Simulated assay, not measured.
Amino acid sequence: MAKGKKAARPAGPPHRARPDEFFGLDLERLSPRAQALTGLTVGGLILAGAALLLALRPEFFWLIFVFGWAVFPALGLFARGVAGLADLGSDGRAAGSGERELLEALRRRGEITPVEAAMETSLTVREAERLLKELAEGGHLDVRVRGGGLSYSLWEREGLEGR
């Protein structure tokens, strides 16, 4: 491109909001917490504006209906954020993601101890030990004693087919 020339703008209609945008914010990129806080803030500002309008200019009471309809998108964003927060665990990870990480580490390594699982995943040793124990008690993993410690592995296919 030559110096001093501006890049040509693409021809077409002006920017239109996508369905996943809210007041110019890309909702897909916001965390659930940010969605909930944004919905709460925008909804609170709308309601505060409506109350202020009623207090200062009661003759414009009919604008309450406009404010009322404007609250719904904010309420929806707030509900979407709260639902996203409910899907996350107390540590901010998606529910079940630790188990998935653990099983992927087991598939990669074949046999694993709780300490090795903690090194391979984002789990702590205590969380890895608890999940491995639960999976073993449910009959999903084979448990072996190696040097006084427990190691866990997936069941071997030959052993399962011979039953």
Rank of each mutant, 00 (worst) to 15 (best):
E111N: 10
W155D: 05
R157F: 08
R107K: 11
G110P: 05
R126I: 02
S153Q: 14
E120H: 07
G148H: 12
L85I: 08
T41Q: 02
A11N: 03
R130Q: 08
A7F: 13
I112G: 06
I64D: 15
D142N: 11
I46K: 08
R144P: 03
A70P: 06
D26R: 07
F65T: 14
A118T: 05
P14W: 13
G159N: 13
G84N: 02
L54I: 03
G84P: 12
R163W: 01
L40W: 04
S151M: 10
K5T: 11
A8T: 07
G44Q: 13
L27K: 03
P10Q: 15
E104H: 04
R57E: 12
F23Y: 14
T113E: 08
F23C: 05
D142Q: 14
S31K: 01
E156Q: 11
E158P: 03
F60G: 04
R33H: 03
L25F: 11
L56G: 08
T38Q: 04
R33G: 14
A86Q: 04
G4T: 03
V66W: 13
G96E: 14
V42P: 04
A128I: 09
T41I: 01
E21F: 01
P32H: 00
V143Q: 13
S90E: 06
G24T: 05
T113S: 15
E156F: 02
A48Y: 06
R93D: 00
V71F: 12
A95K: 09
L106S: 03
G89Y: 01
R80Y: 05
G84F: 00
I112H: 03
W69S: 12
A79D: 01
A11W: 07
E127L: 04
